[in-house]
Design a protein around this nucleic acid. Sequence first.
DNA 1: CCTCAGTTTGACAATCATTCTCATCTGAAA
DNA 2: TTTCAGATGAGAATGATTGTCAAACTGAGG
Lengths: 130, 130
Amino acid sequence: MQRMTKQRSAVSEALAGLEDFRSAQQLHELLREHGNSVGLATVYRTLQALAEDGDVDVLRTPDGEAVYRRCAQDGHHHHLVCRSCGRTVEIEGPGVEAWADQVGAAQEFTAIQHTVELTGICSDCRPVGR
Amino acid sequence: MQRMTKQRSAVSEALAGLEDFRSAQQLHELLREHGNSVGLATVYRTLQALAEDGDVDVLRTPDGEAVYRRCAQDGHHHHLVCRSCGRTVEIEGPGVEAWADQVGAAQEFTAIQHTVELTGICSDCRPVGR
DNA sequence: CCTCAGTTTGACAATCATTCTCATCTGAAA
DNA sequence: TTTCAGATGAGAATGATTGTCAAACTGAGG
């Protein structure tokens, strides 16, 4: 059974106060700074549990680090990340959702989940003069 | 300047003979089995170089391992993977490609790249009786 | 074919995120 | 308050990936 411990709520609260993705290590550091000393292993365990319950989204940075963010209350969406400066824009994919379910059904797959991430070069990073 | 060495061509050849994604470790093992003894570090370096040149695609497995595949000559496509047994189906996303470019352009991003992966439970793994 | 400089290689050490271990602690039900 | 299964944390362990550096190799010239 899941218990409500101070460290578990501390992690949840930290996530609640953030808009974007953070790594387990960053969250751990953040908690320490705020006086909430929580073990690194516990941060990992808690994030894992939250991810399983669908309370947080997980994705991988290009270098393989896992980053977490509380599930957007404002609905499911995806990201467009600048490969140069890391600027992130949240986007919605009305068509993509439907497409994913449709494709899955056509292959006789159920419980379809999808990962869609876009990367590009943002206007600020585009070489000047063009 | 890039030189052509036997290990470099060995890696390329190994990739040429494969359809799906393999990790650096798997490729390393594969090469050893075929008598092409190549250092693990070299496999990593070569794959990195190939990825930079856009000759291979890289993506991350859910547990963070990097997997590589030669760039599909047969056109860009995505995967639908069974979360239970790992069975993989290749799928095409006519609409998704267009959607990605469109969304990117709307945000003033250029050189858009996208990652789209679907997971689900395949018919073989679905609980019987329903 | 022979030489030479700059590359590349490979064995092994070093990183680094994440997971495991296990003794100790704690929430919450009775 | 008692009780104990679930939870914690310090540190070890794991495993992929990268760094190190002397030795081997490639390719251009001669």
